[in-house]
Structures are given as C-alpha cells and as structure tokens.
Design a protein around this nucleic acid. Sequence first.
DNA 1: CGAGCATTTGAGCGAGATCAAACGGAGTGG
DNA 2: CCACTCCGTTTGATCTCGCTCAAATGCTCG
Lengths: 244, 244
Amino acid sequence: MPRCSACTFASFCLPGGLNRRDIDRLDSVVHGRISLHKGESLYRLGDPVTSIYAIRVGTLKSQVSTQDGRVQIVGFHLPGELVGLDSLVSPQYMSHAVALEDARLCRINLTALRDLAVALPGLYNNILRLMANEVRHDHAMLRTLGVLNAEERLIAFLLSLSARLSARGFAASEFQLRMTREEIGSYLGLKLETISRLFSRLSETGLITVRHRSVKLNDLNGLRLIYEGSSGALASFQNHCLAN
Amino acid sequence: MPRCSACTFASFCLPGGLNRRDIDRLDSVVHGRISLHKGESLYRLGDPVTSIYAIRVGTLKSQVSTQDGRVQIVGFHLPGELVGLDSLVSPQYMSHAVALEDARLCRINLTALRDLAVALPGLYNNILRLMANEVRHDHAMLRTLGVLNAEERLIAFLLSLSARLSARGFAASEFQLRMTREEIGSYLGLKLETISRLFSRLSETGLITVRHRSVKLNDLNGLRLIYEGSSGALASFQNHCLAN
DNA sequence: CGAGCATTTGAGCGAGATCAAACGGAGTGG
DNA sequence: CCACTCCGTTTGATCTCGCTCAAATGCTCG
C-alpha cells in the first residue's frame, strides 16, 4: 500500500498547512498505484471522473484536440505534480492525459478526498492553493501565447521547465526533454519546424546546448534577459508569489 | 447594507448547494459596496489581497502588462461574475483589474469568507467550482490562442460573450461591446486593425451586423459552424459540462 | 462646437507556416 | 550483430496571414 507520509513528493502534492498526523490520514484517500507505458492514456475526454492522480515517476501531457486534428497541449505534468486538477469538480474529464514515457502514479479517490476535506479545513486550503497555481500557470501561458514571439515563447518554456525541475531537486540547467518538438510546438502555438530552427539558433548563439532531447542552459541570465525584457517585472513578481 | 439573499445574481456568484439559510449567512462576508468610474482600477498588480468582488453592474477587464508596454488581457468580467479569483490564495493580486464602464461591486471579505467556509463545506465546494470554471475558461482560451486563426478567434469570442450574456438573462444575439477593438485584440492575441477588418468581413458576409460597439449575431448556427468546424465536438462538450 | 480618441481602410512587409527533402537514432527481426 | 524501417529531427525554399505604417473618418464628451 502506498503511503503519502512516506512519499518524497508529499510536500509538493499537498504543500504546507498539514501536520504529520493529517498527512497520515491522507493515506486513506490514495487508492492504489497505476503504471502507464509510454503513449498510454491515463484518461480521455469525457471519461467519468472518480480520481485525480499524483505522479511518482514519469511525465504526462494534457491536451484537447479538434475535429480536424489540431491538438493543443494545455499542460505538461512532471514527477511530484498532480494530473486531473482541471476536472476536479466536473463529472467528466475535460481533457486527455497521455504518458510521454513510462510512468507510475498514485490514484487519489475524489470521494474520499472530499470526505476528508470536510474534516480537515487545511486540506481544502491546499486544494484551493493547487487550483490557484493552475490558474496562475494558465494566465502565464495566455500571456506567452498572446504577446510573446516564437523565440521568447521557447525561452519561457525552457525557463519554466528549469524552475519546476529544480524545485523538485533536479538539475536546473541540464535536463532531458520528455516531449517531441511537435509537442513543444503544440504547447507554444508553434510548428515543429519552428521549434527545431529556434533550438538551432539558440545553440549557435551559445545560450543553450541542444543535442536531440538533452538540453543544457548555458546562460540562465542571458535567457532571462530575453524573457524578462519581454515579460518585465511580472515574471519575477509572479515567481516571488509562487514561492510562498 | 447589501444582502446576498436579495441579489439577483446570487445564484451565479455562489451557485447551488447552499440553502437560503446559508445564503443569509453569506451576507456577513459582504463588506460594503464599491463604485468605479470607467477606466478606474479596482486593484493593481501587487496590491495586498483582502477581498474579491462580485459585479452588480458594469464590466471589467483583468490584464497583465509587460515592461515594454505590451498588454495581455486575461479576462473580461460581466455583471454577476466575480473578479479577483485568480488571486484567491495569493497575498498580492496577480493582475490588474480595470472598469470598462461605470460599475458597482460587492466587496467580499476573504477572511470572513474563509471563516464561514470552515463552517459550511458546501461553500468550499462552490469556491472550488468557481476556480474550476476559471481553469476551464483558461484552457478554452489556450486552445483559442494556440490553434485558431484570427477569424475563428473572433467568432469564438463573440459566441462566448453571447453564451455568458444569455446565461444571465440578456439577449443572446444582440448586445453592446463594452471594450475597444484594441482590448478585444489584446484578449485574442491580435492587433486592433485585424479586429476591425474581421468585423467588416463578417458583416459583408451577413453573419453579423456591426455598428460601432453594437453587435448583432444574425446567424448563430453559421458562426458555430465556423467555430465548431475548428474546435470540433470539444466546444459543445465543454459547454455541456459547464451547464451543470 | 471642437478636441481627442476610436475606428476604418489601404499598401507593403515579415515572422512563422507550409511544402519538400535529407538525415539520424532507436527498435526490430533476421 | 547487422540491416532495415520508422519516426523524429534538421534544413531549405517559398508562401501567406496578420502586422506595421499611414491617413482619413467619425464618435463622444466636455
């Protein structure tokens, strides 16, 4: 039986405000583990919602697709993050979640979670906080898609990935991409060829080193200059808020 | 003293799950009314968060701006909707809210709301539901900015406005725009000239009639065909979920 | 009635899309 | 272990949609 109290990522799944005793009680809402192979779906648009999921290992994407085949990826989910939050109060899933690589997850039973939350107001606050983070992320993405050009978008993506990875103890400036150029493009509202060209161009300037899926950010400050020159104090302000 | 129980929009501010007795208790969290003139700010990025607001009359926008002056509008707020949800659990406001026309609002004290929510779990669920709606809306916008072309975006905007207005008892196919072409453009990731040209083009085809700020949707089905042809079953599915 | 701002419309341009072709790495089967 | 195949990636050439710059018109509100 998996136990939240022993989970490395517990503090990320359900940050702050809960004491050890409360976290122990959380174990009761985790109903089993799930393994997914690369490419498998965790859930599809319209499936009945009974659970959300915490990622132990692996990376997933959430996407919505259109009749004529255009796909918009609305989020990537890293180890330690939750999947399915966007459908928390919906009877059916609002998106399609797919594993980008082999993954293992904890299934969190929503009925049990709701019952427990009535007893633990601190848990409600945590859930609200997670939803608010989702909104914050989405607003940042709206800004990215709305006002940034292609190069700024890719840099925003790389910096955001770097921040999320380092917040979970991974290296901040050197990592493996788990997604294809096409998926990055879909996330950023660009085409895969454009992503490829941008990687080449950023490589030539020395700001980053890219070989296939492995990325190294050689000049974090230089990248931030391009990004923050466009996003202004806003990005750092939001990161500041995000921190507490 | 304003009273939630007497508010026309109470069912939208805090939908379902609360009985009349609970709604009466909500009055205690409403701490006064606010009047804004066109162009005035309700709050600015970084202001300390003590309240969120329910719109009684008027329309507002939420925006984030960049150092070099580029502005991304992340939402328009109609009568009966809430403003400030994106900052619900943040110590400082994450965006800048401005009145598009003279407006009157109810101020909802967050401390009082949190205290009341501990006593009324149904209230927590309502708040979660509102946050989830925000996420749903943002994901729809991400799709709009990510995969739709200019014409599809404007039609998506008009249809969404129409749906929200008619849900609140206003006419679905004839209304006054409260925002400038530039603001529509900022919301949709387009320039004001593009918006103007698109309005002219849609007028020529007879799908809509535009004169200044007044818009008439002559052929809702025709518009939906263009939009759903691009967004597929998704839009109607999400509207279906939105309804309950 | 006049000033300032919003809107419309035109002309030309450019960032990113599209179409096309070659390359390379990973997995599979002989 | 190697050859083959498939898919992801890179790179080039050309096109196009929406942007930029510009000028005229028309509201709105003092």
